[in-house]
Design a protein around this nucleic acid. Sequence first.
RNA 1: GGCGGCGUAGCCAAGUGGUAAGGCAGGGGACUGCAAAUCCCUUAUUCGGCGGUUCGAUUCCGCCCGCCGCCUCCA
Length: 472
Amino acid sequence: MIKLTDTLTEKKVEFKPLEGKAVKMYVCGPTVYDHAHIGHARSAVVFDVIRRWFEYRGYKVIFVRNYTDIDDKIIKRAKEEGIPWYEVAEKYIASYEEDMKALNVKEPTYKPRVSEHIREIIEMIDGLIEKGYAYESEGDVYFSVEKFPEYGKLSKRKTEELLAGVRIEPGEKKRNPLDFALWKKSKEGEPGWESPWSYGRPGWHIECSAMSMKYLGETMDIHGGGLDLIFPHHENEIAQSEAYTGKTFARYWVHNGFVMVNREKMSKSLGNFFTVKEILEKFSPDVLRLFLLSTHYRSPIDFSIERLEEAKRSFERLTNFLRIREVIEGLEILEGEGSPVNVGAFRKEFEEAMDDDFNTARALGALFELIREANLLKDRALKEGKITKAEKFSLLEALDLVEGALKTLGFRLEGERGEKGIEDELIKLLIEVRGELRKKKEFALADLIRDRLKELGIALEDLPTGTVYKRI
RNA sequence: GGCGGCGUAGCCAAGUGGUAAGGCAGGGGACUGCAAAUCCCUUAUUCGGCGGUUCGAUUCCGCCCGCCGCCUCCA
């Protein structure tokens, strides 16, 4: 049973799918006017893990992530760069996808773009006008918030309170200051599409409603995104969608916390952001992922290079463990039972943690605990040079669990088990030669091999059972 | 001002009405020809402060202090 925290009810609830063993999931993707930063990465990784966990639990996940490829910022950027808006969009979609691939975020089932769904959007706006929820005003179309009494239910705001803080702009075309645009008439020289109201473009919120309905139907299971989207974006999505269909739009709302820098939200406007690309130049995607998953997805996480350095060392503890496989393979088998590691208990703890609102921090904790126990057994066996069948089996089981669990969490673990290539064969040959030299106590030569290999990025470790290597 | 969240060891971070997971750093040890790496052990009588409920609270309630977010575009 998977539990998750639903923003709408503000409670941790049991997830029950709308139909069968399927999860219909929509996550708000980026507005593509710049490279993604770590905040975007967090959202992407968090929902990637959620998706992967549902799949691990046997659900078929239909995952939709949109691209907002037409909006004011993109138009502004196009002017700055002196290229058409669609080239800006194209460029940053490519950049985003490159990042997602690097981060090992699974490909969504659908990746709809706003500009390719204008027809659906117009249809929906038309329907909302027909039902009396929206009105046209000088080429713009607005959603009438007062027609939807439940407005504010997601963000826990009352329309009166919202009105109190509103400043009336001069030349306002809205009937009510809280009304939001469904369609915006294009200004001179701006891109747009023909519609019944004007040559214009969709407002920001309507796109997600129209596109999610196209791919997921009128009601979806999970709608996700960053906390900052709750108001007004998701609130508006609920209003227009539920007004349109008369049905529940999303059955569960899931929101991830912010990435902070010096206790402030990482954002474009504050300029305190690190792009995914610049971080990946210094740290592996797995390290970044471990950093992001070391805190519960709903809590804020403070970003810094120091934190990443910590995550890196922490990650090494995981991968070092995966490398003990070859060590235990070489041990002599001893009669008897011994004291095997109770791997099942750790698997249970890991799964329970993940089932409990995707508690990755707790789940990772369980893996670290297992690693300590397994290392303990390994060290003892290594000292004695012997291991019982049951113990060996439990260590192999532990290795499988840790490796499998990490992969389920989306870690790549590339190169952690040693690729089989000519390069590796050559390294093994050098290790063998060095081993012979060491036996003859020709340490100068042996050390030369070790030093030269290190210069090439291959670190040797002399263990009681032999020498192993890893790339650094 | 309205709404929401947070405050757990040097740092990061889980967690529960019954006496504090895990990671990093620090200290000690094992292993080693030397080294590097690795591994093990160890570090909170205590969970922002003050009251209350309770046999018992870090966990529930109230107040206070500090920090953050949303209320405008934002993952």
